[in-house]
Every structure is written in C-alpha cells, then in structure tokens.
Design a binder for these strands. Structure first.
Length: 462
RNA sequence: GCCCCGAUGGUGUAGUGGCCUAUCAUGCAGCCCUGUCGAGGCUGCGACCCGGGUUCAAAUCCCGGUCGGGGCGCCA
C-alpha cells in the first residue's frame, strides 16, 4: 500500500522489473552507500523489502537537494522521486556470465529525512566482525544487517506457523498473568517485585494458569508469552526472560500432546522450507563469509523417536557416561544420546521424583530400579532441551500428596488446587522455548542471536 | 554458586619486557577521478579498561578493581 512517504516499496519495483520501466515512483529508505563526488551520485537505498540504486545527476534535480544527498552519511534516511530505468550492467571480468538485468531509479527530486551520525557504532555492510556484545548494545543498527534482519523475520514466521497449526488443531489462544502472588511451581528462583503494597513475583511459567483454563472448560489452549527466571546462569541457551510456546489440552495424555508437538514442528519446518527459502539463503550467505556451514531446513520425519528415560540412562552408561538411574540427564550426557539421535527426539517417562508436583503418574509404571515413573517428557534436539511437558495430575488428593512429598505447603496452592475440586478432566501440555527452536532453525550458536533485546544475568538494556 | 579465559582507534584485529612515535582491515575527514556498483587513487584522523606495583625500560610481568566471554550446575 502506498503511504505518505512512498508510492512503492523497493521490493515491488524489483518484482515489477521490466513492466515498471518508465514509471514514476516515490521511494524511501536507508542510504546503504553514497558513491560519487562529481556531477553524478549513486545511492544504494534499502527499505524493509529490498535494495535499489538511485541515480542522481546534477541538473536533473535542484542543486541544493543534489548536494545534500551527495554529502550525506551512510544509513541516513531519504526519499526520492524519479522514474524506474534499466541499470547499466556492471563491468564483469572476461568470460564471466552476464549479470542479471537490474533496475534503478533516475531521481528528479530528493529529500533527506534524517541524518545518520558518523561513524556508525557498528557497520551495516562492513566487512569486519562485530562482537555480540557490541551488536546487542547497538541492536537497532545490528538488525539492519541483512542476515540479522532475516533471522527476526524468520522468528515471526515460526510464531505464525506454530500459531496457525495449533488453531487448526482446535486450540484457542489465551493470556495468563505475569504478576503472580507466589511461586507457581517451586524450584526455580523468581524475581520479586512489589504489587502496590503486596509482595509479588514475575511469573516463571504460565503452567498453572493454562491448567486452570482447561479445568474451566476451555478444553484446548495455547499461549505465546514471556517467562521470567531469576537463575544466575550464563550460557548460550539461557536467558532470564524468554518467550515460551505453551499448550494445554483436556482429555489428553502425554503421548497425545507429544503428537501435537511433533506435528507442529513438522508443520513449521515444512512451511519455512516452502515459503521462506530466501531468508535461509540470506542467513547462509552470511554464514559462508564467516566460514560456517550453511544451515539446511530438513523437514523432520514424524513421529520423532521416543527414547524413554530408562533407555536414555542405558545409552549414556554404554557410551561411558557417569550416570545412575534417578540422576538428571545433563548436557554432557545428552551429547552421548545425540550421537545416536542427532535430531529431534522425545525422552518420556522420567522418574516421578524428578518431576514437578503437577505431573501425573500411573501406579504400577516402574523404572528398571523399581521406582515410580511419571508421565513427564522432554523434547531434545541434539544436546539441547527444547520442551518439557507431560500429562498433568487431575486427582486433587494425589496433587496435594505430591505437594507434601516435595516439601511444599498445599495451603499456598489453594488458588490452584481448588480448581480440581469440582470435576477435572485428565489433561496434558508442554512448554517450548521459542528461541531454542530458532537456534536450531537458523544455526545460531547463542540464544541472544535470535532474541531482539535479550535479558541475561548482566544485561537489562537496551 | 563453581571453574577457566579475555580487555589495543568507531568496529574487528596484530603484538609474549627495549625493534611501539603500536600492525592490518574497515570506518571517518578532505582532495582527485568516475555510469559507479565490494568503485578506484592520494592525503590525513583515530586506540593500549581503571588503580597500584616490579623494572633502567611495561600494551607486554605481578596485585586489586571494573567490564566482558566461555564452560558447569539448573532449566525452556
């Protein structure tokens, strides 16, 4: 749609190609480079849809505008009016194939919208590495870099495809409160805050609220929202504020919602590979310049392998890992499992003793050492955990016993347990780390790459 | 919370006690040239995190601080 500042996007002009030649257009964007100091001047103009060269000739527009543009700095924003023309082909080395036809805008009027200060704290097209920290301090400029831009567009697509898939499977989007009165799960540390005169916390998970929604008859719900954890971790895969993709569904067990999850991931990968190849290409172009392997979007086969906790312990042991039944499967253990299962794989049936109080168990389902198993599961990709989920405990007396077993006071959870006193459907769900999924898709080595303004142990700005 | 590592122009780097008036690239400023296109040519600008110590001599070694990175634990 045309706006006050442009009649066409640059992408439209490029897509129009030959048909656009001679057409009068107004475009606006960032000046990626300004070349030529004599009677002519070339500006590579970039907007959110593409880049095109603007050609300015002294005499074809008023002198003042010409000089303003010619003397302006990279990344300044400007607006040009002119006509679309075929671009003269660049010189190519002998024997090289002729370059594809390109188009430019022959400028008849120009306006500088806002000047960029020099020097830029991080170059948008410069051929130098930039440290992650410098990039994050200047994220507003970093995002102008094409591969970074592509990652965030891809992030939006992933959320869109996931959302579309869940809606198709009958889920309704919900929102849970992020300001809560008490620990929703116990376990991790919460950020304390004051809610007027009442002490409160930032929510670590929508878990209990999703369940209350399902108990309330919403049947199938999902939420895409932030979670906050006051853990002092400092790794490539942890942040203190992160967005999770959460679902909860009535009349389901763990296996049912594992199905939802693998179908959703399959659907996201399929859509990305069908529709967003150009974004992956942009990312790969950059990766190549950095000497990194290009990423491939290989649509994972459904169903994903299921490696039960019992089996996982055996794999780790036979791979030489130090582990006993009942121990958590740590990252270095996951490396051993990932040797056999490098892609997505579920690890179902964890020991009940290791799972939160709200996870369901079936009496008589015992592990190799005779201890009670749960209906909790993880989804891993290689060594990294993407999701944890499970069937939930819907029997209120069992729920209260679980709380006691884990040294929590049922009185603190009446807002939750009361929801189970008036008939509760068996239900199950999971929470998926959006950034972790994107790391897999984009080959990013750090979650901070795929989160616009990450919050970690030492970063609260920008 | 534990372990390891690092800090040099705007950005990314070279540098292992004297060869450092500190390298290279990119950037920035100026000039020249040019339908350029990774434009080109010339000239210039710009840095050793902070504080203390060792030494004839410290970007370099030691101590403390600050900031940052990586790994682990825990988790998504």
């Amino acid at each position: 749609m045309p706006t006050t500042y442009r009649s066409h996007t640059i992408g439209q002009i490029i897509a129009g190609g030959e048909d656009m030649v001679g057409e009068e257009v107004t475009i606006a964007g960032f000046a990626e480079s300004v070349r030529g100091r004599g009677g002519i001047c070339f500006v590579t103009l970039r907007d959110g849809t593409g880049k095109i060269q603007a050609f300015l000739k002294r005499g074809s527009l008023d002198d003042e505008s010409f000089e303003t543009v010619q003397n302006s700095s990279r990344e300044s924003t400007m607006m040009f009016r002119g006509s679309v023309a075929r671009k003269r082909p660049p010189k190519t080395p002998e024997g090289a194939p002729p370059p594809p036809k390109e188009y430019e805008v022959t400028v008849s009027a120009a306006e500088l919208l806002a000047t960029a200060q020099t020097p830029l704290p991080v170059g948008v097209v410069d051929d130098v590495n930039v440290g992650l920290d410098t990039r994050l301090d200047n994220r507003h400029l970093d995002v102008r870099r094409s591969h970074v831009n592509a990652m965030f567009i891809l992030r939006s697509k992933v959320l869109q495809y996931g959302r579309e898939h869940l809606i198709e499977e009958g889920f309704n989007e919900m929102n849970s409160p992020k300001i809560i009165a008490s620990a929703s799960e116990g376990g991790t540390n919460l950020f304390p805050m004051m809610y007027f005169d009442t002490p409160a916390f930032l929510s670590q998970s929508p878990q209990l609220y999703k369940q209350l929604a399902v108990l309330g008859g919403l049947e199938r719900v999902f939420e895409i929202g932030p979670a906050f954890r006051a853990e002092k971790h400092d790794t490539y895969r942890h942040l203190n504020e992160f967005v999770s993709f959460d679902i909860e569904a009535a009349w389901c067990d763990d296996e049912d919602v594992m199905g939802v999850l693998e179908r959703m991931i399959h659907s996201i990968w399929k859509s990305v590979s069908e529709k967003d190849g150009h974004l992956i290409e942009t990312i790969n172009h950059y990766r190549t310049t950095q000497g990194l392997e290009p990423v491939k979007v290989e649509i994972p086969e459904v169903p994903f392998p299921r490696i039960s906790y019992d089996e996982a312990i055996d794999i780790v042991k036979s791979g030489g890992g130090q582990i006993e039944w009942g121990d958590d499967i740590e990252s270095h253990h996951c490396d051993l499992i990932a040797e056999k299962y490098p892609g997505f794989h579920f690890i179902p049936r964890w020991p009940m003793s290791m799972k939160p109080f709200y996870i369901h168990h079936k009496e008589g389902e015992l592990g190799t050492t005779g201890q009670q198993l749960s209906r909790g599961f993880d989804l891993n990709y290689g060594r990294d955990e993407m999701t944890s989920g499970g069937q939930r405990e819907h029997r209120v007396e069992v729920l209260e016993q679980n709380l006691l077993n884990m040294d929590l006071d049922p009185k603190d959870f009446t807002f939750y347990t009361d929801g189970f006193r008036y008939g509760a459907p068996p239900h199950a769900g999971w929470g998926l780390g959006v950034a972790r999924l994107l790391m897999v898709l984009t080959g990013a080595g750090n979650v901070r790459e795929v989160v616009l303004f990450p919050r970690d142990r030492s970063r609260v700005t920008p």
